[in-house]
Nucleic acid binder design. Structure first.
Lengths: 339, 339
DNA sequence: AAAGGGTGGGCAAATATTTGCCCACCCTTT
DNA sequence: AAAGGGTGGGCAAATATTTGCCCACCCTTT
């Protein structure tokens, strides 16, 4: 009793019954009479018996763990999604293992190998910005592991997907800018090779076209990454243009904030001289000066829904056959950084 | 071969040897001759044999997983620490399981129970702000699981600790404010019952005392949480004081940013009318206007060191006897929000 | 008295791997 | 010829649990 944990055999020996009977008693198997069950349960309680999940895992060939693969967590976006995922999963019998790909295809590959080695039961993934080939996810699916893709799409991969209508968000933001009289609207686009980058760019382009504004190629500059520092040079590039834009629609809030930073350094007034709109609605965006207009996304809900979809597959293997595609609508939030 | 994964027995059958021999061959046991080893390894390769870690876990009574318990991850602080932890652990044979206590003692308790049920091998923890009793961590230690505490101390708990010298950081910040001529320095303190809150407050108090400035109780207001919104009311309370302070030292950057926000609403100029200094040096703090003076902490390194200490215990059970206590020095970063 | 059926629970296999112990075989030595 | 020792590898237990199959026992029925 002192050494090692209490097992089903200890209880069996004590009660002079077979381990199998203890197992059945604890699981309320009908073939066991009430007195035996009661005795077993009482002793299990008394000895503080804890079933050994490691043995169960081996028997059931599953680890009761689901993997979550995200590019990073230092920003607010993925952290909030993970919080949503966690809050759903915590009520299930599953544990979650969070893995960071650091926006690297290589690392993502390693993670997937690792997860499949520990016999993960399901995977939630937002691919790295380098990932163009999705065969590693297909391999998971082939070995029976459901995969749910969130936020960043994997074009061509058949899987459950929980996405945001980035196109719509971008279109709205740019139409709003046009509506307030901006004529020369620049776009600080996201890193290339990302569905979100493409869709936001397309929303920008279509909003211009719909309003008969000609696209100026110089007004579109893509940033190399997602952080503040990644927005500085591109912002300068745009603001140094001979025909300086009177508005910037940025890929995300971080980039929008660097654009504001640079614009101020250039002596521009926001929003009088230039309107700036971001994307994501990070918590601090409301508290900077001027407060940032941006496109809000239901991040937490996306996390929750992704997790729920995965759980539904895990609980009912049959549903794994048809994939769901859920697209959340983002919402434009106008604050002080735009006219 | 098609159904289910390849096991050691499949290889044994194919080669007409015993499974034990296959196991020894794969593990380069000296009792196996080279030819046998080569044959086994070749076939294992050919069949894409993957050892079943679930079986190994059961045998070794360990899950090869370490748990990381943090209060939240939506802020930059814990996300960056986790990134540091992850970057160290990823090179080991361990997996990490991140658990969010949501600043709740109850949830923390549930997490610990869960982790001990899945027979976690080690734990890295920053306790919730509600946690006053550390018996759940002691129980882990008693069952042989090393516990490393980071950032937020658990007073009275004997364990490895990786902390920041909050006292020193606060002292420096306040002395700097005094040095630039501020006479009435307020402190927006952190949530109560937190080692970091206590130490930063003490640094504030001692810096005042050392410079013969009397403490004004009205100048000390504690915030209820860590986010921007939690700083609004306390900031108003302080700025509405008859004798308005000429400087604020805030518990963290979020709170400092709300203070800036409120100060601007009050028509105050920063730093002319009031200096503001935060704590944490979050990435956006450099990009707001005016850029925020703050106290930088080596977050990423703290994560790495915590993970390294835990790994050292896991690799050598003997070192578990003496606990390490590492205290990082923070650094004051002066920007534009202070005179 | 034999057959039938229900109740309660035990045996042993199964999950995949490692490892202590043993043994066969062969060569060498006395 | 017997003893001794080294090499190579097999047997079976061990890890903790579940579960298919079986069986003993008892009562009832014909």
């Amino acid at each position: 009793m002192k050494k090692g944990r209490v097992t089903i055999k200890d209880i069996a020996r004590e009660l002079n019954i077979a381990p199998s009977t203890v197992s059945r008693a604890l699981n309320d198997h009908p073939a066991i009479k009430k007195e035996t069950k009661d005795a077993v349960k009482a002793l299990a309680e008394a000895l503080d018996y804890q079933p050994n999940l490691l043995a169960l895992n081996l028997l059931q060939k599953k680890s009761n763990t689901i993997g979550v693969i995200v590019p990073e967590i230092t920003g607010h976006f993925f952290s909030a999604i993970i919080t949503g995922i966690q809050d759903v999963i915590v009520d299930s019998e599953y544990n979650i293992m969070i893995c960071l790909s650091n926006e690297s295809y290589e690392e993502e590959l390693t993670i997937v190998k690792r997860l499949s080695k520990i016999q993960i039961d399901g995977v939630l993934v937002s691919p790295s910005s380098e990932t163009k080939n999705f065969d590693h996810f297909r391999r998971l699916q082939k070995s029976g592991i459901p995969v749910v893709v969130f936020d960043r799409d994997c074009p061509g991969l058949e899987a459950d997907k929980v996405l945001v209508d980035d196109y719509f968000g971008a279109f709205q933001a740019v139409e709003y800018l046009i509506g307030t009289g901006c004529k020369n609207i620049a776009h600080l686009g996201g890193p290339l090779n990302l569905s979100t980058t493409d869709h936001r760019l397309q929303g920008y382009l279509d909003a211009l076209e719909k309003n008969n504004i000609e696209v100026n190629k110089e007004y579109i500059v893509h940033v190399p990454g997602f952080n503040h520092k990644d927005g500085i040079k591109p912002s300068k590039k745009i603001l140094e243009l001979k025909k300086r834009p009177d508005a910037i629609f940025a890929y995300n809030d971080n980039i929008a904030i660097s654009a504001m930073h640079v614009a101020k350094k250039f002596g521009l007034k926001i929003p009088e001289d230039i309107s700036i709109i971001g994307f994501d609605d990070e918590p601090h965006s409301n508290f900077i000066t001027p407060s940032l207009s941006t496109v809000w996304q239901p991040v937490y809900s996306m996390g929750m829904l992704s997790a729920r979809i995965l759980l539904s597959h895990l609980n009912d293997k049959n549903t794994a056959l048809k994939f769901r595609r859920e697209v959340f609508k983002p919402e434009l939030v106008i604050r002080a950084s735009s006219r």
